[in-house]
């Protein structure tokens, strides 16, 4: 049963969230990611400054707001993480297994370089207008796949993403469940990830968000950097077109 909250409670929570905006610990991840981006790494000792995120080798500014996109060199539609993994393998000489390892960090003992890199690259798109193209047939295909997945019901509860995110005003406890089928909901959600999760004391990427919703949905584990994750990302990123990207953010 949904809990009813007085408007004053909702207002106070909004004030709480506003008070956290100044001094977002996500900046610590951004700083670490920037250092990693510039560092010569891997068996080949090459930095990411030769990695093309779609706007040319080493161009980070505004790149995330145009991802996912089709990359001719890989003949594949890639989101940021998939592309970073590709650069780690092709440019830096890591094995695929090493590049895919540890996508989500946990505490001091298990820091994730991937999450830090994602924090840095996304921060360089803050203020850039979301502009994800469907001009290549494979981009269009990826978008359609993501859409299909979003409405696909399955798992022990027969849930789809749309079950929880398909109508306005839904809520689990205090958490608003954004309607991700509408432009506004997709915009608000997509442009505010990655986020520093106050409850976890960790920076979490959009990929982590998807991973966690798969878990909530009791679906099999979403494989990191798989086409399934690229497709869902494509669907939501494209639906967010037109507004400015505004992350890394801070969330409860």
């Amino acid at each position: 049963m949904p809990c009813a909250f007085a408007q004053s409670t909702v207002d106070e929570i909004a004030k709480y969230r506003a008070a956290l905006q100044d001094g977002n610990p996500a900046e610590l991840w951004e700083a670490r990611g920037e250092a990693l981006w510039k560092q010569k790494r891997g068996p080949k000792q090459v930095s990411f400054e030769q990695c093309d995120l779609g706007l040319g080798a080493g161009v980070v500014k505004g790149a995330y707001a145009r991802l996912p996109r089709y990359f001719a060199d890989a003949d594949r539609v890639m989101d940021l993480e998939t592309r970073l993994v590709w650069c780690m393998v092709k440019l830096q000489g890591y094995s695929e297994a090493d590049a895919l390892k540890n996508p989500f960090g946990s505490g001091n003992e298990k820091k994730s370089d991937m999450e830090a890199l994602v924090a840095y690259v996304t921060s360089e798109s803050r203020g850039a207008k979301m502009n994800v193209a469907l001009s290549h047939p494979k981009e269009e295909q990826m978008y359609r796949l993501g859409e299909k997945m979003f409405y696909f019901r399955g798992g022990p509860h027969d849930f789809a993403c749309a079950t929880c995110h398909g109508e306005d005003g839904k809520r689990i406890r205090l958490q608003d469940l954004p309607n991700l089928t509408g432009t506004e909901g997709a915009q608000k959600a997509y442009t505010t990830w990655p986020a520093y999760r106050v409850s976890q004391g960790e920076l979490r990427s959009f990929q982590w968000r998807l991973y966690d919703c798969f878990r909530q949905q009791r679906f099999p584990e979403l494989i990191f950097a798989s086409d399934a994750s690229v497709a869902l990302t494509m669907f939501l990123a494209r639906n967010a077109n037109g507004v400015a990207f505004d992350a890394p953010a801070i969330k409860r």
Partner: peptide
């Protein structure tokens, strides 16, 4: 100042 009446999460209270 900047101290909320309600904190959504007790782990971080400004």
């Amino acid at each position: 100042f900047q101290t909320p009446d309600i904190a959504e999460n007790g782990a971080v209270v400004p």
